[in-house]
Design a binder for these strands. Sequence first.
DNA 1: CTGAAAGCGCTTACAG
DNA 2: CTGAAAGCGCTTACAG
Lengths: 333, 333
Amino acid sequence: MKDVAGIAGVSLATVSRVVNGNADVTPELAARVHEAVDLLGFRRDHTASSLRRSDRVSSTLGIVLEDVSNPFFASVYRGVEEVARERGVLTLAGSSDQEPARERALCEAFASRRVDGLIVARCGEDQSYLQAERRAGLPLVFVDRPPRFIDGDAVVSDNAGGARIAVEHLLARGHRRIGFIGDRETIHTAAERLRGYRAALAAAGIEADPLLIKTGVSTSERADAAARALLRPVPTALFTAQNLITIGALRALRELGLQHRTALVGFDDIMLGDLLEPGVTVIAQDPRAIGRRAAELLFSRLDGFAGTTRQVMIATALIERGSGELPPQASSS
Amino acid sequence: MKDVAGIAGVSLATVSRVVNGNADVTPELAARVHEAVDLLGFRRDHTASSLRRSDRVSSTLGIVLEDVSNPFFASVYRGVEEVARERGVLTLAGSSDQEPARERALCEAFASRRVDGLIVARCGEDQSYLQAERRAGLPLVFVDRPPRFIDGDAVVSDNAGGARIAVEHLLARGHRRIGFIGDRETIHTAAERLRGYRAALAAAGIEADPLLIKTGVSTSERADAAARALLRPVPTALFTAQNLITIGALRALRELGLQHRTALVGFDDIMLGDLLEPGVTVIAQDPRAIGRRAAELLFSRLDGFAGTTRQVMIATALIERGSGELPPQASSS
DNA sequence: CTGAAAGCGCTTACAG
DNA sequence: CTGAAAGCGCTTACAG
């Protein structure tokens, strides 16, 4: 910028003014500046600019997800990006890989880069490490799971409600032995879905059989193994509480030749779920909507909203495709 | 930081030294500083720091993808993140949505935030707008498609080779009428795959039938319609040149009841492709490897490598699952 | 309308 | 080992 001023023969202040298009500058001077800018290929340093600017906004958001390549989180990210884009805001994203230490490291790295706000899908059990930033006015929005030991807006799916609907759906078709496969109970969404499962059974007067409940499963490979193990006592139906788990279970059912015998309802929609035989019945979340709402909550804070913390719940939807409508069958083992 | 210095009763310089852990500071002073840091919840402003630092690195990478929620690009992103993470580097990402103007806007926004390097999956026909940054020393790595009108490292899949293998695979099973569905030919990968298709036919002495070639298809919905139209002259096999296109074609085949009659080989692997009936034969790319290699090329430049531009080609692999092994069937219409 | 000067939060020679 | 001072690239009152 100094060089631009030199070539254009004007002061630094004038260059700043025309580059930012604010104050009035004589057309003639402005033209000289533009020429110099083009000549040098000058691009204003956004970081230096926001350092000095009175509003101090970086026009950057930080997002911590479990894994940017998981279709669910990739869609959440997409939703955030869409609304951030409209405001000319860029997004820094990172994957925690379910490691609390990484979640924290990412949040701190984002904070030290002075992002305007943070959207986080937590995995750790304690987000109080964000207390100082929060007090300093950094807007915090949690997605997928509400925060712990800190206050913050949150956008979550109706996990318990959706799970309950899934299980009621199976109960309505006569199933009584319904298996559950989910992630670690320390993960909020996993715990909520298990809660919904138990609630549906309880409401139907059925005691949950511990042998039919398998938790701590987070990859599709482990879900495959878990499903095989679970299928020994031959439940007539399976409720799989997450996309990767559903995929693993589908694989297991197929390898055991049970896909047309054992009913299945999965939480999270999966790509191609409609083309399998039978089609995969799911409780679909709306990850893009989650991302969009989260970004909207964040921007409302940036726009000055100072009310108390809001918790938005995004509805889930049952999509019947066949696997969840299979009737209970007598055990074959 | 000024406040920290005040509370600790030391100079700004000393605070800077202990916060960065560089120079030697008396343990006693260091302790006082740490205390003050904890007390105030101080976190060094990374942007101000890198503004003044001699090396000027921001420890940030910019990545422009076609769509962060497309599984292919999400995996590329993941690969980049993995190697960036090892170096403590954060990633800014954005979706161009196949709009050249957005591609450019994202690159420029990243550049003005002084990222240490740029990884871009271009969609536009001209990246010369990056010339000034390149001259200024900004490392540029292109993924998925090589750059146009500018020099830069590139990491791409063997698109033509993979497509050729796909079509040869079908030819070997006796297919002579093989349909092609792909994206706009202005998209490099789409053009390359069409080239591989033509090359395989030519090598087999078969003239390409324009009626069997459908380009300009970019969503699975449009691919569904394209596949239906294409299936009128009843090709015995289909080569679908991209993941979303494969999905649309699978849907069309199924709705027409042709999934066991018309062979199909898709470019890009798709989730659950192994669980469909028949399983979906694909030419699989390795998007994570693309992302990793791209980041490695970028960091090698940051580490001082100054050689000429490198072009890395990532191999593709044919995965036989059934759909590509169906023999040609007589027309039923 | 334009420029000289102060300063954003930090780092880094330079003295001491 | 520690501090005073200059300065990174920019913006913004303040004069003129």
